[in-house]
Design a protein around this nucleic acid. Structure first.
Lengths: 117, 117
DNA sequence: CCAACGCCTGAATATATGTTCATGTGTTTA
DNA sequence: TAAACACATGAACATATATTCAGGCGTTGG
């Protein structure tokens, strides 16, 4: 038992139990957190916002966020693993594009939040 | 100059410049990333989802996420600093509630994303 | 075929994040 | 008023995350 948590006096057990039941499953919560993690970095936001408008090669994306191709490549791998972007090879170059319509809305919502304060 | 980025052959400079102009300011991007960071943890998601429905004391919240009051208190401080929650003292206890309507929508969007895959 | 190019990847490093532990603060109550 | 309670906080620790560096892979052009 965790002695830091008051067991008797203050916990509204029925309410807490009710809320616990209403909460999504652990897997859903973890997956949701993972999506938000992908959006929780200014450079990845730049990448996603650009890819929401245009298909772009790694080179272009590196220029866009003013960093190395290597760093961008690492970030893109995360976004690929999260299935937020797709890539396509054309000769020596690899083009990326957004592959998740939900994320487009999350981006807009998030930006509005920040802009409106 | 960064030699990792191909300077001449592949960068579509006009396109990149155009996209750069369309991107939000640095401050907006940072603020947006900060909001998403707050949502990028399963326990904080639990806290916010519960607080979206009910005003709750720290004790209840600790029970809800099955952790120590101290850990929850640290998390709540982050959420307060980000102005996502408000608190109110009533005697010995402190009650928290959601203080950001945008976040309610972000939570719903994020969950739907995870549930639909 | 091989050298140049665009991109990817693993290891190392620096920094950020989350929890625990000990202690401090404000309030009530015995 | 002193102890008990609910909560907050700072430091220490463990883990996660982002960038850099060195080198590798696949493709193309000479």
């Amino acid at each position: 038992m965790n002695k830091d948590v008051c067991q008797v006096s203050c916990v509204n057990r029925p309410l807490v139990d009710s809320l616990l039941q209403q909460l999504p499953e652990e897997t859903v919560l973890s997956d949701t957190a993972e999506i938000f993690k992908m959006l929780a970095d200014p450079n990845r936001l730049r990448l996603l916002l650009a890819l929401a408008q245009e298909e772009l090669c790694v080179c272009d994306l590196a220029e866009l966020v003013e960093t190395s191709a290597s760093a961008v490549s690492h970030q893109l791998r995360l976004l690929r693993t999260a299935r937020l972007v797709r890539n396509r090879r054309e000769g020596k170059m690899v083009y990326y594009r957004l592959d998740d319509e939900h994320v487009r809305r999350l981006l807009q919502e998030g930006l509005r939040h920040a802009e409106e304060g």
